[in-house]
Design a protein around this nucleic acid. Structure first.
Lengths: 348, 348
DNA sequence: TTGAAAGCGTTACCAA
DNA sequence: TTGGTAACGCTTTCAA
């Protein structure tokens, strides 16, 4: 029925072992033999059996990429960058690895389920992206899973996610706190005092870190007018809309809104517009992250640009063993404040 | 070292066969035995070996999802919807299937490579999304691959992609031509005559179909002022920007721009703004697709809303065998014209 | 309802 | 440089 390696061997008049060696290119094979084998492969239209190969070699061509929300371009960019790094030369059998993008939806259970699934597949590497849940039990469970994965030979890389203690994982983390501080400091320098903050979901590291930066900036400037002007919600557009509406109710006089990420910022803008406020004439909006479309949505946006793609690409290279892990297993990636033309001082 | 099914069997004092049956839940096993086995699984922290399992059963838990650009939310939405349908009850061993999201980047070679990789993995199903390349050789190659996949027991579903002849694949296709026609008819009805068209990449089915609809509408209304006002480019923001700049050069008087998808529309808007034109006061913009953020980016946008998520979810269910295939193997999914408040007649 | 055992298609070790 | 051949860990007939 289906063509097997033995069929190829027979046709090429060599042993199965030789065919395997040709296909994997990891042992010396005479040029003439190789030719013959490849010809047979071609003629029979042979495709290697991945599971059999993975079983025998006890490792697979799969690389898992965990994302919180695949419909959010933030994670799309990261997944894309990781993927572009894991293909190409250096893999087994054809040099191709398959990225398995797993959508956790921000759910701790699904996160663990996917890690188990990847463990089951004997994945070559796993890249976890984005902020982590701060629940102690879950953190311990994840650490445990990652440890087992690493024990089984799976490389583990965290990208934009805090290090996991004792888990033999490499981490590239974003300087969320520093970015949050810069963003608010910028607004304060422009003269804003009533600044609403649309935070992400609670119990999320990114949420907490960015918010801490914001509060740090306010405290540093001795500004108290913005106290309490914080609303939490998921990292999606609807939440940004709802939170901003709530903030406007709390303080109709606010002159600026900081959004914990760009997707949320879009919802915030919609809410402001609907309230009859203009951006940035009436209210300035500042955001976080690196979505290519945010500049179209809000030409006046001030953002902290996170080098998502670059970081994710590095994560991919590290996962593939092509780049050295950072010293101490952790590297902090800094963002860059991007001030667009029209963001200015409060005008009302 | 690693725990195997035999270890579990030993601990539960049953045969490996029984453990397998418990885990797969596809054979009758006495309740007490099952208990004992599950207890052993738990105690040993056993995780099934996917490759071994796939080898023995000659099928895997993997479902491939091919997308043109994972950083484009269009595909993010589809991937997310497919994924949400393939997990849950009905799978093997724990009822979980793993989605493998493959980013082809619109490249025909990568598309074939990924199909081969999925074939190698003995994927349970493959879902191809988005427009297809119209090169005859490539179409034939894909058809051939899909045939082989189907022969090997892989379910093949096309979503938003034209049917492939003789390939034993089920197709859900969007009515791109009808949508394109409606969009332009709407603008014509408002009085627009000089309408620029920002098309997608050439040799792409979606590009051609949508453009055909546009031309049909123009021809139907006997409008010739827009002839030649078409610019091609990739489905990304930069291309939309470049194409619109070019169209403005060709006809500085145009009063409306139709963009072949939303991502492109964002670039078009940026170009218009930069040219000092207001939307929709000076130029109306119409788009295609269903990106949740487009409404924030361009509150005045008129679009044909494609039911992406719904269609993709259906594709997922069909791939899982939970929903019947459409009659004849093909179903046409219609879009819906969404006219936002402020899109109006030409004002210049 | 359970067990024994024959594969499943590769890989990798040991010889030649 | 090549061949022979045990694993690899599970599924699934066939018997009991």
């Amino acid at each position: 029925m289906t063509v097997t390696l033995a069929d190829v061997a027979a046709r090429a008049q060599v042993s199965p072992a030789t065919v395997s060696r040709v296909l994997n290119g990891n042992y010396p094979v005479a040029a003439s033999t190789r030719e013959r084998v490849l010809k047979a492969v071609d003629e029979l239209d042979y495709v290697l059996n991945g599971p059999a190969s993975a079983l025998a070699a006890s490792t697979s061509d799969l690389v898992g990429v965990l994302v919180n929300d695949i419909a959010d371009p933030f994670f799309g960019i990261m997944a894309s960058a990781v993927q572009s790094e894991i293909v190409g030369p250096g893999g087994r059998a054809g040099g191709e690895r398959l990225a398995v993008v797993c959508n956790t939806g921000g759910s701790p259970e699904r996160e663990l389920t996917y890690l188990t699934l990847l463990q089951r597949q004997r994945a070559a590497a796993v890249v976890l992206t984005g902020g982590a849940i701060e629940d102690a039990a879950h953190v311990a469970a994840v650490a445990n899973k990652l440890r087992r994965l690493a024990e089984a030979g799976t490389r583990v890389v965290l990208c934009g996610r805090p290090p996991v203690p004792d888990a033999d994982a490499v981490a590239l983390t974003f300087d969320n706190r520093g970015g949050g501080r810069e963003l608010t400091e910028h607004l304060l320098a422009l003269g804003h005092r009533r600044i609403g903050y649309v935070a992400g979901p609670e119990e999320r590291t990114t949420t907490r870190d960015r918010l801490e930066g914001h509060r740090e900036a306010l405290a540093g400037a001795g500004v108290t007018e913005s106290d309490g002007l914080v609303a939490h919600g998921p990292y999606d557009r609807a939440a940004g809309y709802a939170a901003t509406t709530e903030l406007l109710r709390k303080d109709p006089e606010l002159t600026a809104v900081v959004a914990a990420n760009d997707t949320v910022a879009l919802g915030a803008c919609a809410a402001l517009r609907e309230a009859g406020l203009r951006i940035p004439e009436d209210v300035s909006v500042a955001g976080f992250d690196d979505l290519p479309f945010s500049v179209d949505a809000v030409p006046a946006l001030t953002t902290v640009r996170l080098p998502l793609a670059e970081a994710a690409a590095r994560a991919g290279r590290i996962a593939m063993g092509r780049e050295a892990a950072p010293a101490g297993g952790v590297d902090v990636v800094r963002g860059e404040l991007m001030v667009r033309g029209s963001t200015g001082a409060p005008r009302r």
